[in-house]
């Protein structure tokens, strides 16, 4: 059986290597991706359309906002699917609880606890910076949301899952995950109500009279990034909490 696998891997690898010749060179100005009128439009018009220096975020949150909205929904559905598979009710106290495969020791080290207590606020501040500055520098809702979720996971690893779940119980993180998608969709619906296309943020300047249409686009990108960050951070913590405790949300790593 292993030989068949080896032959299949070598065959596929050979095919991929032979196809590599047809790729354009790195940074080739005449490659299809660079010479299409669509990318030319993005490169030339992003600054005049929305005044956002980070073109990647402008494409992600504005020109292709519909894609990003459903990417957020995909993250939410993935988290709900993991919860649906893993989540079980707490076992009755009388029943024999299966011992975990590895005994790590349930005492939590004071050095680790203190270090994490100092580290987590810095980590969360950096996550908020990444979210808020996503349309001016690399970053955005997904990256910032993952860093924010990682800070909750760090708290759960350092102090045990139970103290972390006291601060962020299951009801709250599931609710907040849905709030993220609702924030994103509400930006689109607000554009619909004001008589434009779904997620066409330019029209939102009518809500605030001092804002120009470009500023409305830039600020709406920040708004939808915040929505993405809500969903991603909460789902990351939900996945960890369910995986680490076999869905019982008790004990854990």
């Amino acid at each position: 059986m292993k030989w068949i696998g080896l032959i299949a891997v070598i065959f596929t690898g050979g095919l991929l290597l032979s196809a590599m010749d047809d790729f354009p060179n790195w940074g080739d100005a005449h490659s299809p991706a660079n010479s299409s009128p669509v990318s030319q439009y993005y490169i030339e018009q992003t600054m005049t359309d929305s005044g956002v220096p980070n073109m990647v975020t402008a494409v992600l949150a504005d020109y292709r906002g519909y894609d990003t909205m459903f990417e957020t929904v995909v993250v939410l559905i993935a988290g709900i699917a993991i919860m649906a598979i893993l989540r079980v009710a707490k076992q009755v106290p009388g029943g024999a609880k299966p011992t975990p495969a590895h005994e790590v020791g349930d005492q939590h080290d004071i050095i680790i606890g203190t270090t994490c207590r100092l580290l987590i606020p810095v980590l969360q501040l950096f996550a908020l910076y990444v979210i808020a500055h996503g349309h001016h520098s690399p970053g955005g809702g997904f990256q910032g949301g993952v860093i924010l979720g990682a800070s909750f996971i760090l708290a759960a690893i350092a102090k045990g899952l139970d103290p972390a779940l006291q601060r962020l119980p299951e009801k709250r993180y599931v609710k907040l995950a849905f709030v993220g998608v609702v924030i994103y969709v509400s930006f689109g619906v607000a554009c619909l109500i004001l008589g434009e296309n779904f997620l066409d943020y330019g029209v939102l300047h009518e809500l605030l009279p001092t804002m120009s249409a470009e500023e409305a686009r830039s600020h709406s990108m920040l708004g939808v990034e915040i929505g993405v960050a809500f969903t991603v951070s909460m789902i990351m913590f939900a996945i960890y909490a369910n995986l680490a405790s076999k869905g019982e949300l008790e004990g854990g790593l």
Partner: peptide, 22 residues
């Protein structure tokens, strides 16, 4: 690169370790 660093190197490793533990 930022996404790869946060999701690939950060969260994935933690989730894999949590799975190995159980």
């Amino acid at each position: 690169a930022f996404t790869e660093a946060t999701v690939g190197a950060g969260i994935s490793a933690v989730i894999l370790i949590a799975t190995v533990y159980n």
